[in-house]
Each structure stands twice: as C-alpha cells, then as structure tokens.
Design a protein around this nucleic acid. Structure first.
Lengths: 356, 356
DNA sequence: AGCCGCACTGAAAGCGTTTTCCCATTGCGC
DNA sequence: GCGCAATGGGAAAACGCTTTCAGTGCGGCT
C-alpha cells in the first residue's frame, strides 16, 4: 500500500480545507441549503436551519472556496492594479486611492509591478485576464504610439467582460484618466517666465512616456508663447528617478552653466536635481537657481527649500480610476480630466541679477 | 421567449471567454491533449498535435481560467501582502522586495491595506484563505499581546496548507522576521549619549505596536546603562505619521523646553518633528536640537539637515519574507533576524553649550 | 373534504480545468 | 511472427461551489 508515493514532489497536500459539504453535514442540511445561507442568495431559508448552518460554519471556521465560486459565477472580486514601480511615491499615492475604493466595495487588489519593463504590462493584463479579474487599472503612464500587444490584451480582456481604466495613456479604447499634465507644464512656464527667467533647463523623464511628453509640450508651448525659448540644448533626458534627476542636472549645468531655473518633470527628479545643485554643483536654491518639480509628492514640502511643484491629486486619481472601472459599462470608453494646480513654495524666485 | 430577463441586474454576462474546449476543437484534438500541451504536464504530446494546439491557442488568444485551475489543483499562484498603510514609504519598500521575488517566481501579489484598523488584519487573512493564497506576508507590525482572532485565522490558513511570514510580530506560530528594532534603539541611545546629550525626548508611535515597543525599550535600556534617564515626562505617544510627529514635537517642547535631542521612532515622525522645530518652535537643527529617526527611508537624506537615522533594509526584508514563506515548510516556524545599522548624518551634533 | 398554490428543502447539473484510467498503436526482443 | 512494454490519445471523473428543477408538506380556499 505504498502507492501514496508520487513522482511529482509538488503534489497538492491533503488540503484539509473545510468544504461547504462538511458544513452542510455538520448542520444536518443539504449542500444547497448551506449554500443558500452562506452565499447571499435570494432564496429564503427558515430561521432554524439558517442558525444551524451559521453555527456549523463558524465552528469549522469555514470560508468559501473563492476559485470554486469564481468558476461557477464566472466573475471574481479581484481588481488588478498595474504600476511601473511599487516603491515610487507617485504610485503609492494612486494605489492608496484604489485601495480605499476597493475596501469600500469589498474588492481585492492584485498589484503588478512592471519594473519599468514595457513588455510586462501586456503580460500582466493577460495574467489578470486569466484570473478573471473584474477590472484592471493601468496606473503607469503609457508609451507614445502605444503598444499593440497591450491593446490586444486589453481587447481580449474587455471581450470577456473585464473593465479597464488607464491613467495617462493614449489611443487605448478604454476608460482613460487624463491628468492635467499639459496644463501643469503650461503653469510652470508661466510661473518661471513671470519671475523673469529666460534661460531655463528642463530635466525630462523617458520621452517615450505619454506623461513626460504632455508635461514637456505644455511647458514648451506656453514658454514659447511668452517669448522664452528652450532649445534642445537646455533639455536632457534621464530615468524618471531621483538618481536620474541628479545625473541629469549635473550634465545640464556642465553644458549650460548660465541656467537660472530648472524644471524637472517629476518630483523625484527634482529631488535629485536639488541634491546635485547642493552637493555636486555648489549652487544654492533658489538664490542661484530656481527649481520646479511635478506631482507634489508629500516629500516636496519637507525638503529645503520647499519645492515649487505641480500638484496632481494622486489619491483622487486612484479613486476615480477604480470608480470609473466599476461604473456603467455601456458608457465606456470615457475620458476623465483631472486638473493639476501649481503650488508655489520656496524653491523659486526671480533670477539673480547679473552683476558685473 | 423573453425569459432571458432576470431579476438580478448583476447577472453574469455572456462571458465569451475562450475555453480550453474551444481550443481543442479548433485544433482538432481532445480536451485532454490540449490541456497537456498548455499546462506543463509531464505527459508527452507529439510534435504535430502540440503545434496545432499552440497555434489554436494563440489564434484564439486563449488564457486558461485560473479559478478553474485553482479548483482542481487546490492551490494558486497568489500570495497576499498585508500592510497597514499603502501610502507609507516603509511599506512601499517592503512591498518592492516582495514584488521582486514574486516576479521571479511568477506569483501574483494581492495587496491588502488595513488602514490602521487592527481588526482588518484577521479579516484579510480570512479572505486570502478563501482565495487559496499560497502564502501571506504580514508586513505591518503586530500588536503587543497579539490578536486571538488573527492567530486563529492564521492557524486555519496554515491548516489548509498556506504559508505565513510575519514581520515584527510576537507570539505567532509562523515564520517571523525580527528587524533589529531593539538594537537600533540601543544604537541611537549610544550615539546621543556619546554626543553628550542628557535631556532627550522620545516621540513614540502607538505603544501597542511591537516595533514601537522594541525600538523604545532598546533605547531606554541602553540609555539607562549609560546613565541617561528618560522619564515618562520626556516621552510622548502619537500617530506613526508625519502629522503625528509634528504634533508630538510641539507638545513635547511645550512641556520640556530644555530638551536637546529628539528621537522619533520612525522617519515619518522625525520629518514631522523637523517641520515642527523649524516652523512651529523656531529651533534650528542640529544646533539647538539634534533629531534622530528610524527606518532610513529614502527621504531621510533629502531633508535639511540630512537625518541621522537607523537603517532597516526594508526591501531585503520584503524579499526574505516571501522567500521564507516559499521555503521549506517543515522547517517552519523559523525566526530570522535582520540587523539594523545607525546612519549618522547632519541632524545630530553635541548639545549646545549652556551659555550664561 | 379535496384541491390548489405557496414556501421551503434537496438532488443534480454544470462551471473549466487537470488528471486518472483505459484503449489503440507502435517498437522491441525473443 | 508473437507477446509485451512503452507510448500517446481520448473519455470521464473530480475539484467545490451556485443554481435550476423537482419534490414535499402545509394552509387556505371552495
């Protein structure tokens, strides 16, 4: 009787999970009745049986098998959240908003991090489709030109009834949240030009990102309108991170030492730029150089000087994203604009007078 | 023939998801064969049929129904991650580590946020048990005395084959990661006493948290050994957040203006204290007051002055937590110590000389 | 008193997989 | 050339649940 032994070591264990059958038996009712009591069915069960079932379930610590349930109902209470970098305050904030709505709707959130690998986005959507997730939120900015693989996956996902909300994506046939990136960029241009800056450096994230493009073009557009020209020479591209910002700032100032204001396309880069100006370049902010960021991460008001930046209501974006996905499917695809707002703090002043 | 109409509006849609059956049909093979090709079975299928199946699957954009798969295999590729606050850099960092290992093992991560409600921890474990998650990581510190409800849930979860790793919990019969909270506290005491501080204020998070207790007691213990007594009067409890830290600092200095050093039990609170000292209390750091934090969040080196703090390798903790849960079940429960390390930066100096 | 209809329970079907069991075919050694 | 093991394919069972369908007991009506 040694036939228990099996060639596959990863054999599923006895899996002594309590089943509904056992609860029913314990309560002395049929499987159907137990199910009716424990799943919120619309059928009635007499008070007495109901109590017996509830009691048995509690005693056995029964929780229903979600996969089995999902199988028969062909839907789950799972929503997917796809971000580029889990350890980035931008996504944490969005995630917090998503989690809040998820909690209120008793949904579970599956978090997927692409680690900045573009291809993984489509792969995760496929996996979430396999999970029969109810909705997917693409929080990470899309790539300009879009990704055919991603679009196809989303189509397949939608075809099986899944809902999708994308944040800062382009050309996807899904509900989309459009953060005020362009207007934010414009506001920064206006602010810096208004202060009298004429030689402005811009530290960009990957130009392939939709949000980078929007922020940059909003800025350039408005700057040009106000007579401030920012040549390619004053722009530099780097990773959308603190380190990227730091390196970029060094490069930029080495190339164009006359810059009096710096616009980093997100706060993380601005932080890096601040560090570079302080530690590597020996310039003081704002008296030598003004610095502006984007996002208004919580940290923006903890640095010295406090960072002038563009506030994006990230938690709100997260909330709206999930609510959009949970809302009326027939109205889809919709577009929701979320405005941004310039927050002026201590890191920007008029440019230093040229002495001499 | 109008019987399609149903009283339940939330009727599952036609759900035109592609099934394995359809793939098999399309490929002209049996269900079993299709399954053998697409799930990595140990049975062989001839080259030709294999190709036919693969082709059909690709054409139909088939992805297997994860719930159905989970049902028959009675296991999933889901791991749960339970944190207190998604939008807290401490948890983001741990989450990043977890996600990394999850990606390498092709696991999906379910993120659950308790929003600081102690009861939700047990509830989420129950829901993850219902999902038949393979493992659960309790990243949020436990409560002293433990929670019977949580312990019971974990027991039930373990009974059905689930693995659990807890970070900074006490008395749970599961794999546990013990961050160097106590030694970190000791190191801070040594550092501040070594600098000559004798009147030290401590800003605590909720004393019910295990990590708060550990940090505090390590500190008090070592301080006492070195002849520095920190009375209750110099300690204050508040929310484990920036705002909590700010309010606490104000309260503390109003009460005891002679304090020359401040130990905040995490970086978030230290940031708040820094803000309070600067904006509310008009004291400068470090010349009037030294400040120490705990965790070494990335922001610690971006504030001015850069924050002296205790580094906890949070990503590493996340990685180890998941690896522990994925490792040998028979060795469980194990305990893994993760050391901390004092990082001295600009926010601490010897106390000001008493003039006059 | 007999019948209808109501309210509830229980048996069974079915969800989409994996896996077992059985069968047909092949290749091999004798 | 024949039996036997090995190989690969298909039918069917099983996973745990929800839901339909049939059945049973009961009260109210004529």
């Amino acid at each position: 009787m040694q036939s228990q032994v099996n060639r596959r070591s990863a054999r599923p264990r006895p899996s002594s999970a309590v089943t509904l059958q056992q609860v029913a038996q314990d309560a002395g009712v049929s499987l159907a009745t137990a199910s009716r009591v424990l799943s919120d069915s619309d059928r009635n069960v007499t008070q007495e049986l109901q109590e017996r079932v509830l009691e048995a379930a509690a005693r056995l610590r029964y929780v229903s098998n979600a996969p089995a349930r999902a199988l028969v109902q062909s839907t789950t209470s799972i929503v997917g959240l796809v971000v580029h970098d889990v350890n980035d305050a931008y996504y944490s904030a969005i995630a917090a908003g998503v989690m809040e709505v998820a909690r209120d709707h008793k949904l579970l959130v599956m978090l997927a991090g692409t680690f900045h690998e573009p291809g993984l986005q489509a792969e995760y959507v496929a996996r979430l489709r396999a999970q029969r997730a109810r909705a997917v939120i693409l929080a990470g900015s899309g790539f300009t030109g879009g990704s055919p693989a991603l679009a196809q996956e989303l189509e397949a996902f939608a075809a099986q009834g899944g809902r999708v909300t994308a944040v800062a994506h382009q050309g996807l046939p899904v509900d989309t949240i459009v953060p005020g990136n362009r207007e934010g960029g414009r506001a920064v241009a206006e602010h810096l030009a208004g202060l009298g800056h004429t030689e402005i450096g811009v530290i960009c994230g990957p130009l392939a990102l939709v949000s980078v493009q929007d922020r940059l073009h909003g800025f350039l557009e408005r700057a040009a309108e106000l007579g401030v020209v920012v040549t390619e020479h004053h722009r530099v591209e780097a990773d959308f991170t603190r380190d990227g910002g730091r390196a970029a700032a060094v490069r930029l100032f080495r190339r164009s030492p006359g810059i009096t204001a710096l616009f980093a396309l997100n706060d993380a880069m601005a932080l890096g730029a601040l560090a570079a100006l302080r530690d590597d370049l020996g310039r003081s902010v704002p008296s030598d150089v003004s610095v502006v960021g984007f996002d208004d991460l919580p940290v923006a008001c903890d640095v010295t000087p406090a960072l002038t930046t563009v506030r994006l209501p990230l938690e709100e974006i997260g909330r709206r994203a999930l609510l959009l996905a949970l809302g009326d499917a027939t109205a889809s695809p919709r577009t929701l604009d979320v405005p941004s707002r310039l927050v002026v703090r201590a890191s920007t002043t008029p440019p230093p007078r040229v002495t001499g």
